[in-house]
Design a protein around this nucleic acid. Structure first.
Lengths: 195, 195
DNA sequence: AGATCTGAATTTAGCGCTAAACATACAACG
DNA sequence: CGTTGTATGTTTAGCGCTAAATTCAGATCT
């Protein structure tokens, strides 16, 4: 199950996900370990990317969740304004979380909040100049750092990987949609943060 | 940059990560968007897997962080005992988080905690019968559900993906180690949870 | 009109995490 | 021996998230 000789920096078999699957099989031979090679690694990579991003942003005095909010607004183009509803759809977190993100960003003068003119009880959130500036100052740094973490993989394998991930994400979203998951959203700078 | 015709369930170009990269390029043409196809998708998949696991476990009355702790102990084999130090190394969270996880699990009678006999100030954590039972009752359910989410990908592509992820994880861990990251650990059931 | 339903945003309770401060236990050095 | 160092665990402050309760505006029914 383990393909040999691909890393010469680390002895074969020292892979954390393989070790987990092997331990389950040893202790409980019937355990269905087939998903571990994909799911565990995705989780661990997300954790590493998230922690690293938090550290990079701490130097600039922001947190990932705030930058995520500002980035969605920045990327939407002039007039850098969206309803909280739309923000929730684009952020993969609950409406309550968006409300809190906006409140924090408003406290720090990074966005303003006002009732929408005509429609119902909607609220429009707009980037302030300070918020705009903060995005400009940090986005490239974050993305460049992430590019650096992918560098060793090489462009071809990175593309292969992106393609397989695209396919899996599409499958998973369909599967979850079928089972009636509510917040179907999915964007961000490209990632929130968890404390 | 976008490979055409691979999904017939979703019109090409409707991919969330592609949409993000395209929006950055439109608004800020110099933005280094190369990593988004991999990093964003990994983040989103981790979020979906994590949310789904939380829902599955809620039915059994556990949270992912607790099951993660119990799983590390269960997988270690008899006598199902580890020091908190070792638990931290195997869990990809800080020592403080482990201390809290153990405290919660002890409150619920899933583990016991006692000072190690000889050595230093170490503390040994041991699975109780109730904790053992809880693992047996839930692990297969969680892993089977995750296998179901991967099912559509097919076995060959799943193996390709696992292999690319293994390589990337190895690269990223090396890169972070060089820069002096402390908690080098990495295991779990295979994933904690973020509240 | 009054009652009820629906949709949108916010608030609250509670959890889990990080970082940093704190508290020990043991070891080594002078 | 006392100080200093090192390794380990716990505690605390503060953040961000979820789920559920709440508030409020407008639409619909009778």
């Amino acid at each position: 199950m383990r393909t040999p000789e691909r890393s010469d920096r680390r002895p074969a078999g020292d892979d954390p996900a393989d070790a987990i699957a092997a331990a389950w099989s040893r202790e409980r031979p019937e355990t269905p370990v087939g998903s571990i090679g994909v799911v565990t690694r995705i989780w661990q990579l997300a954790k590493h990317f998230g922690d690293d991003r938090r550290r990079v942003l701490a130097e600039a005095g922001v947190d990932p969740a705030t930058l995520d909010l500002l980035s969605v607004l920045r990327r939407s183009g002039p007039p850098y304004t969206m309803s909280t509803r739309d923000l929730a759809v684009h952020s993969l977190v609950t409406a309550g979380a968006i409300s809190q993100r906006v409140a924090r960003a408003e406290r720090d003068d990074l966005v303003t909040r006002r009732p929408a003119p005509g429609r119902s009880r909607a609220v429009l959130v707009e980037l302030t100049p300070a918020g705009h500036e903060l995005v400009e100052r940090t986005v490239d740094r974050v993305l460049a750092r992430e590019a650096q973490l992918l560098e060793r993989l090489g462009p071809e394998r990175r593309e292969e990987l992106a393609e397989l991930l695209r396919e899996l994400l599409d499958d998973v979203q369909d599967e979850l949609k079928v089972q009636g998951v509510s917040h179907v959203g999915h964007e961000g700078l490209d990632q929130p943060g968890q404390g």
